[in-house]
Structure formats: C-alpha cells, structure tokens
C-alpha cells in the first residue's frame, strides 16, 4: 500500500528515498544541496515579498488608522483640505459597482459556459473559448478607452428611454452624465465574464458522464439534465469562479476610474457619478499633500488588499476540489 502512495506524482521527488544514503556533505559536494538552497531562496522570496507588502501597508497607514479608527470606513466626509478622511463613498461605490457587475455577468457567463460545455461540439467550443479568453488578455486601460468613447455615447442614446419608462424607480432617476455607477458596472461585467466562462466551462466539462446518463435514462430533457444534474454537481467550482471574479471587480482600477466620474458622493441612483476605492487611489495618490492624506489613501489600499485576499482565499478553497485545473490570471 505504501508503495502505491509513494508512486503518485504529488509526492515530492526528494522524499522518494532515492538519495537517502548520501550524507548532507556528499550532496553539497555533488552540487545538489547548492541547487536546493538557491532554489529555496527563490521560493521563499515570495514569502518575504508578501510579508513586506503587508508590513508596508500596515506601517504606512498608521496615521490614518490612529486618527480615525473604524470610523474611517463609515464616515462620508472626504475633505483633504481640512484633513478629514471618511471612506464611505468609495466603499459604497466599490460594493455597488462590483455587485451590479456580477449580477450582469453571472447569468450571461453561466449561460455561455453551459452552451460551450454541454451543447457546442468540442472543437467549436475550444475555438470559441480561446476567443473569449482573449477578452481576458485585453488590458484594463483599453477597456477604459472603449468605455469612454464607445460605451458612454451608446448609453447616452439608451438611458433616456429607460428613464422615460422606469424613471419612477429610484435607481434610474436623476440626470445622466454618461459617467456613472452603471457605466462602470457594465465595463466591469465585460471584464470579469471571461473568467466566469472559462472556469465554469472547465468544471462543467469535468462532471462525470454517468451523472448525465443517469438522469437522461429517466427521460429528462437536455436542459433538465444540465440544470438539475450537471450544474449542481459543479456548483463549488462555479462559486469559486464567482468569488474570483468578485475579487477582480473589487480591485479593478483603470477602467473604472475612466468611466465612473470620480465624484465622492453616495447616490441611490445608478445613473449618478460615483467613486471607488481603487479609483480614488489612482487619482489622488500622486497629488496627496501631507502625511495624513497619504496614509489615508494607503489605508484604502490596505482595505482593498484585505477584502480581495479574503475572496481570493475563498475562491481557492472552493476550487481545491477541481483537480488538474490551473487558474492563471
């Protein structure tokens, strides 16, 4: 039994006992230990960098943390001139745009993933997935460019009709300036949809055929099989892809900065301009005068870091069940 365990590729090379008889000195002389130590340094540098990152965010946000405490997150006055910093408008904007983006991209992404995994012939599916993954390779700043010069002019034509018929609903009223929570959410949803599609498709494909055949044999339609037997089986991986997308949407900077309007206010209307955490950092960081201002912006970075780390960690945990699939991106 122990032989079987040792033969799996997950067991690291060294622990297979192939060179146990050599002493440490012999391995050093043959160069093995030198290589070991050098590569070890490469591996551990990741831990050093991450440690430094956390330490720097913590130390360089101390003035703001000490001055405002937890109120920093819920106060809505952002007044650099008088040194009063409350981040609520940015927190609110980040949460609203990210959730709205997910609300748009989850149904569309899941629908596409189902089509690509269950309906399309495998060759066509692979080709289309390759194309869709190209969307993920487009830099954020180019989405911003498209957002400013293509999406916003289109929205200027569409939004008046929406407001004419649905303007009585608070989330649609108010003057539309082009830049808004809504525009930012649409750009974000386009940016995260490739992640939802490519990961969900992978999970759906890996669902065992027997799972489908069992329900097929009971006389179910293709859709019944997909929706009641395949999707529930893959739900952990799908949730993982959603958390990963949420983490990306929360931390997305350039595209959002370019279309959200950068106004530090809290509005019920999605058509109003707003601000996000990442956007305020991008806009004000280089002009921050005074240590408290800088520390407040770095504290925003710390908040963003902690929140995205939580969702990333959740996503990785959920996807641990998916063997052999790597999430790059």
């Amino acid at each position: 039994m122990s032989n079987v365990v040792l033969a799996t590729p997950e067991v690291p090379f060294e622990s297979r006992g192939l060179d146990k008889k050599q002493t440490w000195w012999e391995r050093l002389r043959k160069g093995d230990e030198v290589v070991h130590l050098i590569t070890l340094a490469g591996g551990w540098s990741i831990l050093v960098i991450t440690g430094l990152l956390v330490q720097h965010l913590w130390v360089y946000s101390r003035l703001s943390r000490h001055a405002f405490g937890w109120h920093f997150l819920v106060d809505s006055t952002w007044d650099p001139v008088n040194g009063i910093f409350g981040a609520w408008p940015f927190v609110y904007g980040t949460v609203v745009t990210s959730l709205l983006a997910l609300a748009i991209s989850i149904p569309i992404g899941l629908g596409s993933a189902i089509f690509l995994a269950e309906l399309a012939p495998r060759k066509l599916s692979n080709a289309l997935t390759f194309l869709i993954e190209l969307l993920a390779a487009v830099p954020s700043v180019i989405y911003g460019l498209i957002g400013i010069f293509l999406l916003i002019p289109v929205l200027f034509n569409v939004v008046p009709y929406v407001q004419k018929y649905f303007g009585w609903i608070p989330i649609f009223n108010g003057t539309f300036y082009g830049v808004s929570y809504f525009s930012a959410s649409i750009v974000l949803s386009i940016m995260v949809v490739p992640f939802i599609i490519s990961i969900s498709r992978e999970v759906l494909i890996s669902v065992p055929v027997s799972q489908r055949e069992a329900m097929m044999a009971l006389g179910a339609t293709k859709w019944d099989v997909t929706w009641r037997a395949v999707v529930p089986y893959a739900r952990q991986g799908i949730m993982g892809s959603i958390f990963l997308s949420l983490a990306r949407a929360l931390g997305e900077t350039m595209a959002v900065t370019m279309v959200i309007g950068n106004v530090a206010q809290v509005s019920t209307s999605l058509m109003a301009p707003g601000y996000t955490i990442a956007a305020v950092i991008a806009n004000e960081f280089t002009e921050a005068t005074g240590d408290l201002y800088l520390h407040a912006l770095i504290e925003l970075g710390l908040v963003l870091f902690v929140v995205t780390m939580i969702f990333n960690a959740l996503a990785r945990l959920l996807m641990l069940t998916m063997k052999g699939h790597e999430v790059v991106g």
Binding site: I49, L52, L53, A282, F285, G301, L304, F305, T308, M309
Partner: peptide, 13 residues
Amino acid sequence: LLNGVPSVVMGIF
C-alpha cells in the same frame, strides 16, 4: 494570493 493582489495595491507597495 500574491497573484490576486490588486495592481493598484502593488503600486502603493
């Protein structure tokens, strides 16, 4: 986790 750090935070660091 480092791969998931928002790029703007990396800029601050």
